[in-house]
Design a protein around this nucleic acid. Structure first.
Lengths: 250, 250
DNA sequence: GCTTGACCCTCACGCGACGTGAGGCACCAC
DNA sequence: GTGGTGCCTCACGTCGCGTGAGGGTCAAGC
């Protein structure tokens, strides 16, 4: 009886079930099952109901396994280690070499991804942020909504949308530069005091037409005149061209 | 007929079989089969015998897949990309984040392995190189072989081997320091000119006995005397203790 | 017409280290 | 006896193919 009690206490103290072991070592029950299945850590006892019971020796072995697994050694190498095939140092050095080599690969990979991103940024349709960066924050929001409402059902609008949708950030930068050059031409023509029918003014107006034509939607001379009238009628456009705008209406 | 020829030529030029495609893109045939199976790149035609035929469109699609796969994007993300779910930039950025995070883990892992190696070097039985580093190159080779032949079947030898086999590099360093201290004691005792029976000489001899006793194998006073005689008989030992050795024979 | 390679096909298992149920006993407390 | 928790044993899924096995197809040379 005394002996039995002792034994019982002993068992209670020394032999743990999967759940207890799992919690103690910070691994899952499934992992313990797995180690058992592959013969890496086989609990040396079972209850009559088949519950795994881990003795101190089992726990010591498991501790080793867990330690080396934290270093990402493959299970079969851990197996070798426990079986005494080769020293721990050998295995660790091999593992280190593998990991370091992998580190190199990943570093190169990040560089490759960066290069791809770089290309992507230059070849891909620009994002709203890109446009705001180029044209200022007021760009897309309210104005585009209003514009869509006013001209959304016109051919010019559709065509413009289709074309600008494919513009990259680089493209938009070109467009911007071109627009500035065109505006500068118009302003210069006005500043010169020459009449709107002068060659210089005509050239500047034609440059403006071509700008719209090539960059946004087809526009002939007639359409361009209609456009000019509309610009004049809208105070926001005239404000944009601050200096005496009516001269642009040819 | 002319039309047929043209068509035939056309097919020959434009539609490639798996092997040709594989070579062109530097992937394996199996990979193409796989992409077909998962619906990533499904060749749009087959011969009557069931051979896959890749059209230009298929090749273009494949090119995209190969490109992104080189960046290690998972197949399903490449799938999403081709289906237009999300921009390439998004996917690349996500991938970059994953890889960078993995880089961090691996760096930490290397550090962990290094720490483990460090511990290993200090706790593990010393290697032959370690010993040569400590005791000089002449250590193990010829002498150990001869010693093994002479005393290999004695208890002292067995015991010594068993114990020293577990000595770490650090342990050996201690042994070396202790041995030097003991030798210094003996030399000092002799140098003092006191007789071998003097307290000082006795203490030094006892220190020598204890050194052997604790570090290598059990040795009592009688055995120690026998050992001393042997040392004297062997010129190599006397050379080691250069200064008048007979005094050590108590 | 027959053979011989080279090329193609479709299964189907393997890998590494478990995750994740499914279906069913075992144990303890009420 | 009943409910909750813990344990058990299958067994499939993961990810991107590699690697045969077993068997048709095609163009070329005899």
């Amino acid at each position: 009886m005394d002996d039995m009690t002792t034994t019982s206490q002993h068992t209670a103290r020394m032999e743990l079930t999967v759940g207890q072991v799992a919690e103690r070592f910070g691994v899952t029950v499934r992992t313990l099952h797995h180690y058992d299945a592959v013969g890496l850590v086989v609990p040396s006892a079972r209850t009559h109901a088949g519950y795994r019971l881990y003795t101190d020796a089992d726990l010591a072995r498991l501790a080793t396994v867990v330690t080396y697994r934290r270093l990402d050694l493959p299970l079969d190498e851990v197996q070798d280690l426990l079986d005494g095939d080769g020293t721990a140092e050998e295995h660790l050095r091999r593992r280190r070499a593998v990991v370091v080599s992998r580190l190199g690969e990943l570093t190169e990979l990040v560089a490759a991804i960066d290069r791809a991103l770089e290309r992507e940024m230059n070849d891909r349709p620009a994002t709203t942020e890109d446009l705001e960066e180029l044209f200022g924050d007021g760009f897309g929001e309210e104005y585009t909504a209003e514009a869509e409402e006013r001209w959304g059902d016109t051919d010019a609008w559709t065509q413009s949308r289709e074309r600008t949708g494919r513009y990259t950030k680089a493209d938009w930068a070109e467009v911007k530069a071109e627009a500035e050059a065109v505006d500068a031409g118009l302003v210069a023509a006005l500043a010169s005091g020459e009449p709107p029918t002068s060659e210089r003014a005509m050239d500047a107006a034609e440059a403006h037409r071509m700008h719209i034509h090539t960059r946004f939607y087809d526009v002939d001379a007639a359409f361009h005149r209609a456009l000019a009238d509309m610009y004049v009628a809208d105070p926001r456009f005239t404000r944009t061209y601050e200096d005496r705008a009516p001269g642009l209406a040819q």
